[in-house]
Every structure is written in C-alpha cells, then in structure tokens.
Write a protein that binds this DNA or RNA. Structure first.
Length: 821
DNA sequence: ACTGCATCTCTTTTT
DNA sequence: GAGATGCAGT
C-alpha cells in the first residue's frame, strides 16, 4: 500500500511529468504508471508525433527509459541491448528539454574508459556543451572533486595526495612492523585486503564488527585500521576507499554540504549499477535523498565483481530502496545471433535470484547462422593450435583479426596462445595485464615528481632515496624515520635537519645532503620551466636514466622507452600538478596504434566489448568454473562464474566457439579434466558439437541425433541428444535413478562438490519449481516464445509451463523463456 | 649492500 | 614449473 503522507520525500520529489509513487486505484488523481515494457507504455511511446533527432531509432522500451526522467528509474539492460545509447540519449534528452544544465547532471561510471566513451557520445549529441558536464566521471574522480572542496572537514588539506595500492601496502607494512607483529603470519597484503573490504562496505574503524576486528592479528584489526588512518592523515593522503568514505562522512556530518550537492544534482545517472559496492550505494542514497531523480542502468546477469565488493543486492533491491521506481527492461538484443542468445539465456537461467530477463532478437534464426560450437582438444597446446588454425582460416576468408577474440578465465591460459601465435606469426594483442603506470620505472619516475611537488610525500621519498643506489641503506633510513616520527614531520624535512647534525655517518650524510640539494634545485625550477623539460632534467640529474642505461638486462631498453613515453604523455597536461592528479586516478593509458590483431583477454576485461568471432577456451571443471571460486564462495561463487560464462557468450556477434581440453597442466603438474558443467547447460538445439580436429576421441563427441526442438528442457527425451560428455551422462544417470538433485541444493552440498566431482545443476530447475512462488503466468494466457512462436498456456508447474504452440505443438518450456503476447 | 638459494604461491581488477 | 619474495651469507 502506498504511503499517503504528502511529506514523503519521494512523493514530493517528482517533477511535472509524473508522480513517482505507485498509485492507489481508488484515487482517480493518481494515474497508474505504465508498466515498463507493457502495452500502454509501448503505445505511449509509439504515439509520439514529432521526435527529436536523438530519439530516432530507439525502440519503445529504450524510449521509455529515456523519457521517464523524473523519479527513480532502473534500467535492466541485457547484454547488447543498447545500454550506453539509452544512457547518453537520456542525458541529451534532459538537456534538450531544459530540465537541467550540463553542470546539474551527475553521471557516474566505474572506469575511466566508460566515462570517456560516455563523454564522447554525449558530445556527438550536444557538441561543445559536454565540457560543461563537470560531474561526469568515475565514482572516484567525482569524490576527489568533492573532497578537494571540503577536505578540511575530514582533517585533510585540499592538496591531499592519493595513494595507490602499492603505496598502501608499503605503508601497512611499516605499521605492522612498528607494531612488532610477525610479518609472515600477518601480511600487509592480507590486511590491505581486509581494509579494502571494510571500506567497500562503508565501515569506519569504529564500525567494524568485533568479530572482524578480532580476525586479524589477535584482535589488533581495529587498532591497525585506526593507526593506518592516522598515518594517512599525517601524510595528508588518502587511499581509494577513503575517497568514497570521506565523502560519506562529510555528507552525514555536514547537512549543509549534503544539501548543496543534493540541490546541485538535479538528475543522477549510474552506469553498471550491478557493480556498485555498499559504500557507493550509501553515497548515492545520500545524494538521492534530495530529489529522487536517479536512474541506474545495469544488468544483474553481468555482475562479475562480487569478489571485489560489488553487491548484486544493490540492483536486486532497487525497487525497495527507491519506492515508486520505474523499472524498464531492455531485452531486445541488437548484437548476437539467435543461437548465441539462446545459448546464453539457457545458461543463465540456471542461476537463482535473478531479476529475470530474456534476450531476444529480431533476426530470427536464418539458416546460414552458425550455431554455438563446442569442441574438445587433448590438451591446452592442441587447443591453442586448433584455435590458431581457425583464426588463420577465417583471416584467409577475409575476416579481420580485430573482430576475433579469445576470452579466457584466468591469465595463465593466455601463454599457450601467445606461444602459438608467435610461431604462427599471427598478430595478437593482450588486453589487461600490467599497466603502463604500474611499471616499476614509471612509478619510480613519478615518485621523483611527487617529491618535487609535495615534499611531505613520505612514501614517494622512501621509494627513491636510494634509487639509483646512493649508499643510503636501511641503517640511515632508520635514523631519519625515527627522527621524523618523534617530531611528526615529513621525512624530507627530517632529513634536512639531520644533515645539519652529526648523527649520520659522513658518507650517508653527504649522500643525503646531495639528494636534498637536487630536490631543492628542481623545486626552484617548477615555476620557471615547462614541466616536461623539468621532468627530463629530474630523471637525468638524479641518475635515474643513467641507471637503466648501464643496466645490461633485457628489459632495460624497454624501460628507457617507457620513460620517454612518459615524458611525451605529459605534454598533454598543463602542469606537473595537473599531470600527477590525472594519473593518480587514471592508471591506464590509451593504447594508440591499432593494427589488425586478435585480442586475447580475460572474461572480466571483455565485459562491454563485442566481436564477430569469440573463442572461449578452457571450459573445464576447476578452470571454469574456477575451483577456488567454488571452494571459497560456494553457490554464490558458482553463480558468479556462470554470469561470467554468460558475459563470454554474449560478446560474440556471429560466431562463438567453446573449447575444453582433456588434460591441462595446473601448478606444474598434469591433471585430467572434466568438461565444464556449463557445457551441460547449453541448449542442444543452438549448439553444435564439432569433431575434435585431431586424434583424441576420449570424450567421443559423436554427432548423431539432436535437432530442432530437442532441448533438454523438453519433456520428450531430455538426454537423448548428441552429447555424451561425462557431465551429461551424470545428469542422465541421476535422472534415470530418480535422484532428486533439487534436494541436494538445499543444504551444504557445495562443499562436497569437490570430492564427488561436478554435480549437474540440472536439478536446480526442479528445485526452483517446487520452492518458488510459482510462475506469474496464468493458464489460458497467450504467450510468445522465441523458438516456438505463439501459443497458449495449458498447464503450469512451478516455473515450467506446458504450452500449446500454434506451430510447434505442445511443449514444456520454462517461464523465463516466454513473454506475454 | 648485494647475491644466491630456499620457500611459497598460483583467479578475476578498477580506482 | 615459474616467478616472486625473503633470508642468510659474503
């Protein structure tokens, strides 16, 4: 029942277009909101007379998502359904209709890349005005902006610096050492992970639970967290987590500041909402309390970052969190063939706790469309060889390498492909991996720059005092440290005072004085010299470039090139300070040259991309789904792995080929592999099992039978298909023995999965049908199924529908695969 | 302060 | 089986 309280912030917040609350039928004034994607909504969208140019080509749902600008909106955008298009058009629409100026729109993304793309695309609609969109950026970038204005409210100076993970770990290490803890038992890395998870959940030292505080170093967790924060405060620095956390603190403690941002941001948009963590959610909630014009776009089925704090729950709970929310589902896929979509949809249907979407396409399965192929290989070498051959064959048929990608679960799988492609002379590029600004030489150079610009940057100073070697070893540094800590002054200042005394050995004293003199010198030139010139001088005079020039190792020349590249990339910035600010938030650099090459990357980094041809190697139990994910997070882990598989499949436009091998070397020793359970979850009629290209036939993929309508979800003959992989056989056996797989899913069965071998998830569907509230379809209802067409429901069993199809006859189908006609 | 040997670990990644 | 890290020895 809806609240009738007129003071409810939600009710008041809506603009002129419609009320944000669900209506009471008894109240004639409150018209019901059109159900997203419902007939009324479509009709409304269709009736549009004159359409602004930017709206052209949008389908009804997309248009609804664009035009519903007031009140909370959740856009559930399946893979390839035009998500970015909706987001950018929505902004264009808000601006074009005069609801806000560019500076009044808050648009948040996760990555810099996404922010950049969004900016570009909005620029295409509104031209120069994009520059006015000061609040388009990543969560972190926007938080920095807010924090620079109000730093003093959390005990920082506006000039605070931002630590990256490396600095963070080194700082923690010092704290753990100072505490006299066993560094082996309680590693800095572990604590960094803990800190991260606390900050992801928006927890300050006081707020962490006793249990969690207890878990690290015999209950020192809380204290270490506190000390760490104190140290940051002295360093006038914060880590990535703090950017959000400090903002939240400010918002909570200073109502006037919060209010001012609330009224500034008239419209808010969040991209990839399924990836938000609790802190980001809290941040957003605080801002959205003013007016609830918040639009979140995401896809619960593509939530693959749970392990780094993303809360799928945020998107699943959206309607409760933002009452009266309009939910729009984008399910019309413009990317992939119907076979690919069918494969992806069937697979993901094995997950529970979804908001439920089914992708469909208009380009209905024409004959020349390839089915999703499944192939096997003896080992990973053969896998790489076969895929290499296929890529060459495609290339010979005029396909561009840029349109092909190999998506792996873990980066160790990449090597085999690289090796193979090198011998073939096939152009490839690895996406992901160590990034430019994370390379040692770049970080060293940056540390020099940071010390020049910010003498209090202790971490930078420590990094380079003795790089190149100057005879300033541990002993000297210890003295400087002690001196600095005693007086609570930065290391550089301490060093400056110490060289005036006799406390240091003459050699060290001279070396230290020398270093400090150089910095003094450079600092004097900041104002008078271009920052690129100064940068060169710094690297030169410090002896840093010299150090690499003398280095005879294989990497040295590359490192020198990188340093040159660093200087070159600085040219785009106005000043050294501006450059440093940029890279503290943007750790990656656009790669410039784009020659024709196959892409090799992890499934995670493939999110958001698309290719004509996608190869998915390594679908074996233990690899994918990853054993560790299964062991550590059980059912939730399995489901995240499945979403990852879903992401992989939906990257392909025309061709997707999945591979598994019989043997693989893991941690040095050979293991024989069992095909991934995910293979069993693909629909037989959209999948083609292809003959192994060479000798081994261990898994005997004989191709007989199968065909139209032989989905395992049919009642006819669920396992009588051309598959005879062990997974399928197990599932079949279980079925024959009448085993209730569904039961197994209730308890603590995930643990036993390891020993008993992979279980099929087949039973989950059964489990679902008994436990779930049941389908919201009714007997007699007319529905549409993307494979079988129109029909009417003759029986309902949980989420399984018996449907009399007009063309295909009676079939049993899952309710998630049909929509109301 | 540097080098060599032993030991440990071994998903995914952005900011 | 490799790569990183840490410790002991010079």
């Amino acid at each position: 029942m809806r609240s009738k309280d007129p003071t409810s912030s939600m009710a008041n917040s809506s603009g002129p277009l419609h009320r944000g609350m669900p209506s009471n039928p008894a109240d004639p004034l409150a018209a019901p909101q059109p159900k997203a994607g419902g007939i009324a909504a479509r009709a409304m969208a269709a009736r549009q007379t004159t359409m602004p140019a930017y709206m052209e080509g949008l389908n009804a749902e997309q248009r609804l998502a664009v035009e519903t600008i007031n009140g909370p909106v959740l856009v559930l955008a399946g893979a390839g359904t035009g998500k970015t298009r909706v987001l950018t058009t929505r902004i264009a629409h808000i601006l074009a209709t005069g609801h806000a100026t560019p500076g009044q729109i808050l648009a948040v993304t996760f990555t810099n890349k996404a922010a950049r793309e969004m900016k570009e695309r909005i620029g295409a609609y509104i031209g120069e005005n994009v520059e006015g969109m000061a609040w388009l950026g990543t969560f972190h970038a926007i938080c920095v902006k807010i924090l620079r204005r109000h730093a003093e409210l959390v005990g920082l100076k506006s000039s605070f610096s931002i630590l990256d993970t490396d600095d963070q770990v080194r700082l923690i290490k010092q704290i753990i050492q100072a505490e006299g803890l066993d560094e082996k038992r309680w590693t800095a890395k572990t604590f960094a992970g803990l800190l991260d998870s606390w900050k992801n959940r928006g927890l300050t030292p006081e707020q962490i639970s006793a249990g969690e505080a207890q878990a690290f170093a015999n209950g020192l967790g809380r204290k270490l967290y506190q000390t760490y924060q104190e140290r940051l405060s002295i360093l006038n620095a914060c880590d990535f987590g703090d950017l959000l956390l400090h903002c939240i603190t400010i918002f909570k403690e200073h109502d006037d500041v919060l209010k001012s941002f609330q009224s500034r941001f008239r419209y808010m948009l969040v991209d990839e909402y399924q990836d938000t963590n609790i802190a980001q959610y809290m941040w957003l909630r605080l801002l959205a309390q003013g007016n609830s014009n918040v639009a979140c776009v995401g896809d619960d089925d593509q939530s693959i970052y749970g392990w780094r704090g993303a809360e799928v729950d945020n998107i699943l709970r959206f309607e409760q969190d933002f009452p009266g929310a309009t939910v729009v589902r984008l399910e019309r896929n413009y990317r992939s063939t119907s076979h690919i979509l069918s494969a992806a949809s069937h697979l993901i249907a094995h997950n529970q706790g979804r908001l439920g979407k089914t992708l469909f396409t208009d380009q209905m399965g024409s004959e020349d469309e390839d089915k999703v192929q499944v192939a096997s290989a003896w080992d990973s070498q053969e896998e790489a060889r076969s895929i290499g051959d296929e890529i060459e064959a495609l290339q010979n048929h005029g396909h561009s390498l840029n349109e092909m990608a190999i998506l792996v679960r873990a980066s160790f799988q990449m090597r085999e492909f690289e090796d193979r492609f090198v011998t073939l002379g096939l152009n490839y590029r690895v996406i992901g991996g160590p990034r430019f600004y994370e390379r040692m030489e770049i970080r060293d150079a940056l540390a020099y720059f940071r010390c020049v610009m910010q003498p209090s940057d202790d971490l930078a100073f420590e990094r380079i005092v003795n790089t190149p070697k100057r005879g300033l070893g541990e002993a000297t540094l210890k003295i400087v440290h002690a001196y600095a800590r005693e007086r609570a002054i930065p290391l550089m200042i301490a060093a400056g005072e110490l060289v005036q005394t006799n406390e240091l050995r003459p050699k060290a004293r001279a070396a230290l004085a020398d270093v400090l003199g150089m910095f003094e010198n450079w600092r004097n030139q900041v104002e008078t010299m271009s920052h690129t010139e100064l940068a060169e001088i710094i690297l030169d005079e410090s002896g840093y470039t010299q150090m690499w020039r003398q280095d005879r190792s294989a990497e040295a020349p590359g490192r020198l090139d990188n340093l040159k590249e660093l200087i070159r990339s600085m040219e785009e910035f106005e000043s050294m300070a501006g450059f440093l600010e940029h890279i503290s938030l943007v750790m990656d650099k656009d790669s410039d040259v784009e020659e024709d090459a196959v892409s090799i990357m992890t499934l995670h980094s493939a999110k958001g991309l698309e290719f004509d041809t996608v190869f998915l190697p390594g679908w074996e139990e233990g690899v994918f789904p990853n054993q560790r994910a299964l062991d550590e997070t059980g059912q939730a882990g399995l489901e995240e792995e499945r979403r990852l598989a879903y992401v992989g499949l939906t990257r392909g436009r025309k061709r997707v080929k999945v591979w598994f091998t019989s043997n693989r070397r893991i941690h040095g020793s050979w293991q024989s592999c069992i095909p991934s359970r995910f293979l069993d979850e693909l629909p037989a009629d959209s999948v083609e099992v292809v003959e192994a290209s060479s000798s081994y036939g261990g898994y005997g993929l004989n191709s007989a039978g199968g065909g139209y309508g032989a989905s395992r979800f049919d009642n006819s003959d669920p396992f009588q298909s051309k598959y005879s992989t062990p997974g399928w056989q197990r599932a079949r056996k279980a079925q024959a023995s009448g085993q209730q797989y569904g039961r197994m899913h209730g308890g603590n069965q995930t643990r036993r999965a390891k020993k008993a071998g992979p279980m099929t998830i087949e039973g989950e569907l059964v489990a679902k049908s008994v436990t779930e509230v049941g389908s919201d379809f009714a007997i007699g209802e007319r529905i549409f199924h993307m494979k079988f067409g129109y029909g009417s429901i003759s029986d309902i069993e949980g989420n399984k529908l018996t449907v009399d199809f007009e063309k295909a006859g009676q079939k049993k189908v899952l309710d998630s695969f049909v929509e109301r006609a």
